[in-house]
Every structure is written in C-alpha cells, then in structure tokens.
Design a protein around this nucleic acid. Sequence first.
DNA 1: GCCAACGTTGGC
DNA 2: GCCAACGTTGGC
Length: 131
Amino acid sequence: MAYWLMKSEPSAYSWAQLVKDKRTSWSGVRNYQANNNMKAMQLGDEAFFYHSNEDRAIVGIMKIVKLWRPDPTDETGKFGMVDVAPVKTLTKPVTLAEIKADKRLANMQLLRQSRLSVSVVAEEEWKKLID
DNA sequence: GCCAACGTTGGC
DNA sequence: GCCAACGTTGGC
C-alpha cells in the first residue's frame, strides 16, 4: 500500500466539491512526473488532498478507486488520470507552515518539488501527518 | 502582484 | 543535443 499527495486549487476543484461528488476523475495533469506517479497508484492506495494557493493545507484523505487510464481531455494522448473518492475530512487541516516546521518532514516530495501536483508520501511521513 | 523554480518549446 | 526564451505553478 502506497501513499500520495494530490494538489488542487480550491477555486478550481475543492475538497468540499469532491465530498459532494462522492468520486471524481483526476483529469488535467500535464506533467510527466505527476503522470508517472498516478500510473504507479494501486487500488486502495490513499492520498492526501492538498489545497494549493489560497489554503495551503492538507484537508482530507482520499482513496484510489480506479486505476490509471488515458485522460480524455488530453488531445496528445500522453497523459492519464485515476479516479479518487473521499475517505475522511481532516478535523484539523495540516498547513504547509506546520509541515515545513517539522524537521522530520523536510524530505517530503511536496517540499522538495513544490510545483509537482501529484507526489509520493513515505509511510513514516503519512503516519506523522495524521496523528 | 511578484518572483523563484521548474518544465517545455524551438532555433541552431 | 544545447540552451535561450517563454509559460506555468504556487508560495509569499
């Protein structure tokens, strides 16, 4: 079982919207590394939902409910998407500032590659973030 | 609104 | 294959 972090600007697609939708196809990724991370996802893997820009915080936990397949919105046919469903809303969001303040989280791909929209979360990092 | 970091494009 | 120019992301 692997863990991931997926970013969205709340003005584009928010956690509240996902909760309302029950599930969604994570389309629109146009970056090879993010795409490769989605290709590596397995059914049942869990992922943080991170609000970029306005919020800058992890706000919920999702699970992968459908494997990678081509993204119909990508005319080049290079990029794909997975389907996700909400698992849990965090009672207290974990802010970027809090993540940055924790030395043990300094190696998170989120911090090292700030522009990557789909990143890997190590198991130790995941556990630290949810307790 | 600014700008650093990074990815992509295209000329050579 | 290199690299300058340009576009985008996302934190501040």
